[in-house]
């Protein structure tokens, strides 16, 4: 459970307010371009500091922690992997010994890559893989990080509709299996429809919700403008 308590984030003239409790499970974050969806997620991940307010995960206050100490993993729109490192080297960066890849780390990484379906690509460079495979590798790293919250900042927006749908399903099943709460930013109401659970709407400089996805998609629901 993530609780935003009177949170205000100011960037120049722009201001975003959030006061809500996000339940466990899969939650989509929807809003127009420039509405503040990424800013909202960045405040949770620690890449942007709050102007005022507090953020709690369960009962622990996290807004004062540095980004790498927060219980969140994040996948961005781009630059999710270091292009000069192989997949095993990329994933090893979250596996304890950071100076070299030990045999035990390699085994651990291979098992996780099997879960996301790309175990045979363990020694490839990101440039030798498709966009979908790169997203799977980034997802594998998230599983290795073992954080209870996963933030997805439109990571699949450059993929085709089928690949995107497959990956959302994969995230959904893995998050259920490992008890990870997911917040997915999206522009596309289809993504919201694909996943049950909750949705948050960012509009008029305010973060609204969470709403039950089915209710939000009703004719009079908060997603009316998108449908």
């Amino acid at each position: 459970m993530i609780r935003f308590e009177d949170v205000i984030i100011k960037i120049g003239d722009f201001q975003l307010a959030a006061n809500m409790t996000v339940p466990k499970g899969f939650t989509s974050v929807i809003g127009q371009s420039g509405a503040g969806k990424s800013t909202f997620l960045s405040s949770l991940s620690g890449h942007r500091s709050l102007t005022s307010g507090k953020i709690f995960v369960d009962k622990t206050r996290i807004d004062l922690l540095p980004s790498n100490k927060r219980p969140c993993s994040i996948i961005f729109q781009e630059f999710n992997l270091f292009p000069h490192l192989s997949i095993v080297q990329n994933l090893n960066l979250v596996c304890g010994n950071k100076f070299f890849v030990s045999e035990s780390s390699r085994e651990k990484i291979k098992k996780v890559l099997e879960k996301v379906g790309i175990a045979e690509l363990i020694d490839r460079l990101p440039s030798e893989m498709s966009g979908g495979q790169q997203s799977r590798a980034a997802l594998a790293r998230v599983l290795l990080q073992r954080n209870p919250i996963l933030l997805l900042d439109e990571p699949f927006s450059a993929l085709g509709p089928n690949q995107k749908s497959e990956l959302i399903d994969l995230v959904d099943s893995l998050s259920k299996e490992q008890d990870i709460s997911v917040l997915l930013i999206t522009h596309d109401p289809k993504d919201v429809r694909q996943i049950a659970g909750h949705c948050i709407v960012v509009k008029d400089q305010t973060v609204l919700g969470p709403f039950e996805t089915s209710a939000a998609l009703d004719e009079d629901g908060p997603l009316k403008g998108y449908l």
Binding site: S67, K69, F82, L93, K98, R141
Partner: peptide
């Protein structure tokens, strides 16, 4: 600019960042 967010999100800082990212790139 390109890798700051990723590095921070996985806690890759200090000497490890220099070794894996800065010197290699």
């Amino acid at each position: 600019t390109e890798f700051e967010n990723l590095s921070r999100s996985i806690g890759l800082t200090g000497i490890f960042w220099v070794w894996w990212v800065y010197l290699r790139r």
